[in-house]
Design a binder for these strands. Structure first.
Lengths: 202, 202
DNA sequence: ACAGATAAAGAACAACGTTCTATAGGGAGC
DNA sequence: GCTCCCTATAGAACGTTGTTCTTTATCTGT
């Protein structure tokens, strides 16, 4: 309050706004799910005005799109991070890391795939999803060349593996999972599929 | 308009309102996706007042829950409908019917799983999801008893199959599918998994 | 036929995403 | 350092949404 009784406007340094909003959105999303992602809620969390979402991300959808890209970029890193010398083991470890990412960020993972049917996504954003798929395909291809998986179109095989992983973690984070040991169930499904694709029994 | 210039209220027979709203919601959902599912939009489509959603379904969420139950009930029928004499073939046909259902009702399928992470669902509604899973488990169990799948906990195995199916169709209806022949890709993944679970090579 | 309960229609309210208006930060020029 | 102007920030207003409240018509029981 100023000496004249008028409210004093505070103003955030413009270099911090984008990050504050993005971090606030990420936090609110995991804490409250998609219902927590309101423009006002994010702005309050970030300590800025709601208009900041529009100047920085263009719209609420733009903010969601930024979360989408961040999610796929992080997912790609997860698939890519294992460094086992054996190609099949490296692929498998990447698949385990996939689940770990999803379970560590359940709401973000859910948003990434849910928004594909909802949001009008830019080519650039879709590219981030494609990159994570390409990383998986590359790992599959390497295991094929090493003779550890039956030779086939690596894209087709990667699609199958991705489908299985996505289905498993989606049901798991939604708590629609009736198996007792969820981690073992995921590993077992993965091994059954890899075996069906030509891997030696694990 | 009455002779006195006052609008004449029309009133729908109460036995029709619930069905009109539900059918309107189902149509709008498939035509426009979740964004089309507004209370006013559904009411207009059904030719009733928005308040009808509340008296019949309790809330917008209640309407969505009715769609959820309808979806899972229909999905269960799809899994259950094949009558092939051979248990493994019957299971496999049910899995193909699963995909057919999802592709025929992409938005409904998406809503069914998306809402699991969003909606506070009644025990009754969750039971409809469990019933469709139980049907799949039963089919798995029968194939095991016939010696066509390796003996294991049928729940665990059904969970794996469901995960793979769910992942595959989810990515397919979201158009995140890089394989050339999607139907063949699904069948191939299914067969690889069933083979890994003990089925003779198809 | 009449009365009362209930649910249907229509209006109003609070919260939402978005756009508009007022204000302050930051950079350029002197 | 000071002034001016542009831009982005905060705050307010607007249209749409889900929901609740009020009015009105249907339905049931006597």
């Amino acid at each position: 309050m100023s000496a004249k009784g008028k409210a004093v406007r505070t103003r955030t340094s413009s270099t911090e706004i984008g990050d504050s909003i993005f971090d606030g959105a990420l936090d609110l999303l995991e804490e409250q799910g998609p219902a927590g992602l309101t423009v006002r809620g994010v702005a309050i969390r970030a300590g800025v005005a709601p208009m900041g979402v529009y100047s920085r991300f263009g719209s609420k959808d733009g903010l969601i799109e930024a979360l989408f890209v961040h999610g796929f970029t992080t997912l790609q890193d997860a698939i890519d991070s294992p460094t086992e010398p054996d190609p099949l083991n490296r692929l498998r470890a990447g698949c385990l890391a996939y689940r770990h990412f999803a379970l560590s960020h359940p709401q973000l993972y859910h948003l990434m795939f849910a928004q594909m049917m909802v949001l009008q996504l830019s080519e650039e954003s879709l590219e981030s999803a494609r990159h994570s798929f390409a990383t998986l395909t590359e790992r599959v291809s390497t295991a094929m060349h090493a003779g550890e998986l039956r030779s086939a179109d690596p894209v087709e095989v990667a699609q199958q593996i991705w489908s299985a992983m996505h289905g498993a973690v989606s049901l798991e984070i939604a708590d629609v999972h009736f198996a007792i040991d969820r981690e073992a169930s995921y590993a077992s499904m993965l091994d059954a599929l890899l075996h069906g694709l030509g891997a030696a029994t694990r």
